[in-house]
Design a protein around this nucleic acid. Structure first.
Lengths: 233, 233
DNA sequence: CTTTAAGAACTGGTTAACCAGATTGGTTTG
DNA sequence: CAAACCAATCTGGTTAACCAGTTCTTAAAG
């Protein structure tokens, strides 16, 4: 998910090799969901790597819900079944760094949904936060300063108002990389920033009026430039 | 993102308090993007917590792209700006466990997109993998066995074929929790499993024929039951 | 022979000491 | 006076010892 420096990248390869070895071990020993994995010490000895490497690999598999560590007890295979486990580990091993195009594509997808959900579910508190972010954005643009951050904070406020915690989390995950890339490629110039103020206001008003369709339409307008940019890389 | 046991949950609170202290420190000292954070040792002393706690907190902020550690050098504030950083940390601190409804809602959103992207971008290799997962699924259903895992592997194959690494990653993240909840609530009965075979075949054929619209339609059909279920919780 | 209780061994988690490389400040040299 | 170099220091990362529970073995008691 994130860019890593060289030493960490080498580490990544070790981690992946450990993960695949764990998978092989599970298959070879025919371990089933709920069964206990050999201890971290044994694994580190068997694989001839440090225990911390083993721990990192286990933590990664734990993040994806494949393993589950219990303190002072052991590491267990989650209840997702052997077939799913093998398939998922396969997928995890070949996960590649997200390219900018895939990030933007995903962002557009998420936001067209969160904005319409937000129009249905927003509370008054949500509206306040959105308005606050909106004003911070217009202030900066009017002062002629860069406002990429304030822009995205407005969008994060919408994600929060969507009432969907998963989408909210995903927006948080992709946001910093979006910011970095935006500032790197200078996606937004000042003309667009000024147009952005009105577009944000339109979106805000649609959400306030609890009109999902209109909110989605206004968001599409807002994304028009981004959309073209994304598909011209 | 994942369910954690009690001891880890206590840990979570410590971590969050450290994160907010780091944020306060950055604001108080007016640190800007690129600036160096105090060393882990100093922070652990200042906050009166263990260094490993500080490291975990930093790693979490690194995952969300807010900090960046350089070995033998220091931890630096990423180039996302002070405003965005404050907003994001705020959001990270109040991230809640994803509820099942939000998971399903997100899955439907992602899959309706990945399936249409897959129809446009799938390679022959992608088709092979999808067909393999499809056959594994029908075999199990015909033998009367539970096939939730094989079902999801087919869907993961589609995500992979979408050529969008971000969506692929997100599908991987939510899949294990979907499986757990499915098996807990017994969402799919045997009748639906049988219908599922034909629905999967329809989706597969649409992707093979490179017809995005049709593929999306067939996926909608496949999700019809799930959709109702999701909105009746 | 069964039950139970005690203890040895093992578990993941934590802590503190250690490492190699980057940084920095002062000293030397041109 | 400026540039170059070198060593003391500080950095995040790594390793090994330690900790507090859990689990399994075993032997004693019923």
């Amino acid at each position: 998910m994130k860019l890593e420096i060289l030493t960490k990248n080498e580490n990544q390869e070790i981690q992946n090799s450990i993960i695949s070895k764990i998978r092989d071990l599970i298959n070879y020993k025919n371990l089933e969901p709920g069964d206990k994995l050999p201890s971290e010490r044994m694994l580190s000895e068997k694989f001839e790597v440090s225990r911390s490497n083993v721990r990192e690999a286990i933590q990664k598999l734990e993040f994806y819900g494949i393993l589950k560590s219990k303190p002072q007890s052991g590491t267990f295979i989650a209840d997702i079944g052997q077939v799913a486990m093998n398939g998922m580990i396969e997928d995890i091993l070949r996960l590649e760094e997200p390219d900018f195009k895939s990030l933007v594509e995903t962002r557009i997808l998420l936001e067209l949904k969160t904005v319409s959900l937000a129009a249905q579910r927003r509370t008054k508190e949500d509206l306040n936060q959105m308005q606050y972010a909106l004003e911070a954005y217009s202030d900066k643009v009017i002062r002629g300063e860069d406002a990429v951050q304030e822009d995205l904070l407005f969008h994060l406020a919408i994600a929060k108002a969507s009432g969907n915690s998963t989408m909210d989390t995903f927006m948080l995950i992709i946001t910093p990389e979006i910011i970095t890339n935006f500032e790197k490629y200078h996606v937004c110039d000042k003309d667009q920033a000024f147009k952005g103020i009105q577009e944000h206001k339109d979106i805000f008003e649609a959400i306030k009026a609890q009109d999902p369709q209109l909110a989605k339409e206004k968001m599409k307008v807002h994304f028009k430039v981004l959309y073209q940019y994304c598909y011209n890389i």
